[in-house]
Design a protein around this nucleic acid. Structure first.
Length: 425
RNA sequence: CGGGGUAUAGCGCAGUCUGGUAGCGCACUCGCUUUGGGAGCGAGUGGUCGUAAGUUCGAAUCUUACUACCCCGACCA
């Protein structure tokens, strides 16, 4: 990609509407723009990262044997009445009528749709267990959207749903999904914790949350250094108690000491059991020929929220520091040249083509701009590496490689391709 | 919905108290110079001052209503 051709509207001053770092940087780096409160445009760079996150999620979920589908955003009232949630869900369910005065809503989640799909089209225990998932835009008319895409009203979510003949089968899928989630966050290059959670409005019994660790996180996590115990700290405090007072105490029914950390919830997995299948009468015929209520699990990941969470966890005063697997641009090549036929520019173009052929995401900054502007913008948008090709190339046949996370280094021009290829292996 | 705040050019802001026909920095356009840490000089473009009504000879400025957006709270994958 060429810097002169891509649409990246930088902002020098922090927009006054942005309070949190990820929101500020996404705006300043030209990755998103607001359309209305909690509703955003995704511009080329931001969209690229969103797609990279989405693809990692898709691959890992698919590996569990789940199949991808695509469900509608607009959902009829009947199904929500069926599940008893039309009245229960409250005003965050955005409702409207079509031209025939029939009631609809914008889908904040898809339990109703998928349970309806399955009850109408799956009849035998032999077809179980089955897991389906989608990656799709959700809409929740939040009371107060905030922090940019961190809590938007419209957001991209991966939601998976599994169906089982019994709770044992549900548990097996639940655990494999849990493993898939771990693989996802490892590949994303994010520090995270899994904590026991309140299953909330979605219902069901067993559930765990995946949190990306960040000081700015809205949730407080309580965990132990000695074991796997970890729990959303909300669940440990009684009314009126300050959450931070937990620090140093021990867990209930344990002598392990509580440590606290801030997290951003980006995933939630549930064993729903038969909440929806009972309400909506979703059954299959078992091996004895009897009708059995289905057991269900559901598994969500906030794909767009991950983009914000990654920035909250990985940034400095210069800008974003993308983990290499989700960097929209992994390497920016910055020729500092005086004329179009300058040797530095020619070498830069050559390196650009070679790295592209290696499958790396590379940007050539072919604009006639000064070094300061090019490197500042490269750092703002979070490129893990910038290659500066200028005076040192002309004088000594070396280039400077500026890492976003390590010291800069001077490298022979002939070796820089190998150096960078290795860095991304 | 309760509390607090903001609305003037793409972004950040001044001007509002004390009414007199809109300004600064950045960005953008053109020219010349410049090219290793957000360049310099010169010349330009761009705003029905959130919307509507009112007061007034005259409103960004005063009055009223409305709308949008942000922050705190309740709520929330």
């Amino acid at each position: 990609m060429l810097a002169s051709k891509i649409f990246v509207p930088f902002i020098k001053d922090n927009p006054s509407e942005a309070e949190v770092v990820s929101h500020q940087l996404l705006l300043r780096a030209g990755m998103i723009r607001k359309v209305a409160s909690g509703i955003y445009n995704w511009l080329p760079l931001g969209f690229k990262t969103l797609k990279l996150v989405e693809e990692i999620v898709r691959e890992e979920i698919s590996k569990t044997g789940a199949h991808e589908i695509f469900m509608p955003m607009v959902q009829p009232k009947d199904l929500w009445v069926d599940s008893k949630r039309w009245d229960k869900f409250g005003p965050e369910l955005l409702r409207f009528k079509d031209r025939h005065e029939r009631d609809f809503c914008l889908g904040p989640t898809h339990e109703e749709i998928i349970t309806d799909l399955i009850r109408n089209n799956l009849n035998s225990y032999k077809e179980l267990p089955l897991t389906l998932f989608q990656i799709q835009t959700k809409f929740r008319d939040e009371i107060r959207p905030r922090y940019g895409i961190m809590r938007g009203r419209e957001f991209l979510m991966k939601d998976a749903y599994s169906f089982h003949i019994d709770s044992e089968s549900l548990n097996i899928t639940y655990l494999s999904m849990r493993e898939a989630y771990k693989s996802i966050f490892n590949r994303l290059g994010l520090e995270y914790k899994i904590v026991k959670a309140d299953s909330g409005a979605i219902g069901g019994e067993i559930s765990e949350e995946f949190h990306v660790l960040a000081d700015s996180g809205e949730d407080t996590l309580a965990f132990s250094d000695e074991s796997e115990i970890a729990i959303n700290a909300e669940l440990l405090i009684s009314a009126g108690e300050d959450i931070n007072s937990l620090s140093g105490k021990s867990f209930p029914n344990s002598n392990e000491i509580i440590r606290l950390a801030k997290g951003i919830e980006v995933g939630h997995i549930f064993q729903l059991g038969d909440v929806y299948s009972t309400a909506m009468n979703a059954t299959v015929i078992d091996e004895k020929g009897d009708r059995q209520i289905l057991q269900m699990g559901c598994y969500g990941i906030g794909v767009s929220r991950i983009v914000a969470a990654a920035i909250e966890q990985n940034h400095d005063d210069k800008g974003i520091i993308w983990p290499k697997n989700i960097a929209p641009i992994q390497i920016s090549i910055l020729p500092i040249f005086k004329e179009q036929n300058d040797n530095a520019l020619l070498f830069a173009k050559e390196l650009y083509l070679k790295l592209n052929q290696q499958g790396l995401r590379v940007m050539l900054d072919d604009r006639q701009e000064r070094f300061g502007k090019k490197i500042t913008e490269s750092e703002l948008i979070g490129c893990p590496y910038a290659v500066v090709i200028g005076k040192n190339y002309t004088d000594n046949q070396t280039v400077e490689v500026i890492s976003r996370t390590a010291d800069k280094s001077e490298i022979k021009a002939s070796e820089v391709e190998t150096f960078l290829t290795r860095a991304f292996q």
